[in-house]
Design a binder for these strands. Sequence first.
DNA 1: CCTCCACCGGAACTTACGGAGT
DNA 2: ACTCCGTAAGTTCCGGTGGAGG
Length: 419
Amino acid sequence: MVQTINNRSHHVGDLYEKQWGGDDPLADIIQRYSQQRQPIILRHELLRSDYVPHSLPHRTAQIRNVAGVLATVLRSVKPSNIFLYGKTGTGKTAVCRYVLNRLSSEVVDRGVNVRFVYVNCRLAGTEYRVLAELCLAAGVSVPFTGLSKGELFRRFQNACWRLGLSFVVCLDEVDVLVRDFGDDLLYELTRSSNEHCWISLIGISNDLMFKEQLDPRVLSSLSEEEVVFPPYTATEIADILLDRAAQALRPESIGDDVIRLVAALAASEHGDARRAIDLLRVAAEVAEREGAERIEEQHVRKAQSLIERGRVKEVVLSLPLHSRLVLLAIYSCARKGLETTSGTIYNVYREFCSSIGSEPLTDRRVSTLVSELDMLGIIATELVSYGRHGRTRKIKPTIPSSEITEIIAKDDTLSTLLS
DNA sequence: CCTCCACCGGAACTTACGGAGT
DNA sequence: ACTCCGTAAGTTCCGGTGGAGG
């Protein structure tokens, strides 16, 4: 049906042309709309978070550091293991992939028998799948389940020895792997090198505390070299955005002042460049949808609340039943103007529990649930003392209660509590 | 200055559950 | 089918505390 209409659309246009004698009342609207539909985003892929840019402003020092350590591969010598750390969105992954890309083309030109592998441990999920990635890179095809980890590792090593292959393996978000499965795999990898076939590791982590979970032997071997990635400042983020916008967006579609606004909003968080680029992309999409010529401040503001809403929704939807009940208790107390202290909230929470026929948790447990909600940023707590009347936490909602109720209302068991 | 409220938050323990190994 | 193990959620117990009111 749709197909038919599309196929004949221009004929229909001709028909109207005749019928209205060039005076089609929709013509100018359609035309104006299609004129305005000049896209703002010319190259979507450049604004995606997994894109590796050709230039990385304000990361030359880190690039030189990493490349300096890895450069020995060009002489077939095993580089030291490197550990990269810094908060999210500070360019660790981008720098690493950038250097790896560059070196791997050099290596191919020089005929050195080294391969570069990049694995994101969080996306891979298990030790088995990380090993499977390595096997794949060594040209060994392995079933995606069924073998033991030891067998996988043996096959990988056999392939390396047979082909005289060496590897530079980048384990991104390696902290996740260690948290979930321990450091056994890292230990195996760090000690499996010999004269001709070696494995160099690049560990990337945004959790600094992670180092404490490592076996001292693994730690000392993994962090032979360390490169720190400090958060970007607002002006640095602005540079990055300017650079990216120039390539991805139609020229003239965004002004410097708007870019600086995006940068300032993103930098006020943690200097996270990924967030900044997300914000830019969403703002551009908003502007496009509204048929605007340029991205203006209002589009950025809208984009920000859009992103924030998405985040809140995701968080609330992932909450288990009792956390939701606690959250609901907090927001309904706040709406009724009751004192939002732990005691009152716990009582309201108990009422909610009994009205949906669920056993309430203890006050101690609820106390940690409140702390967790605080950590997630959907409420804010403050320790206060009322002297003789004790000490408690004052709990404040941080997002409009309408948003919370809107999300909770979709839940059948909880919607009855909204009143 | 001392008391004592109403809760905070650490620690140890229990329970439930989903794999892994056999 | 069975045990074993690790983990997450939750409970019990309890020591700790800032400051209004005595």
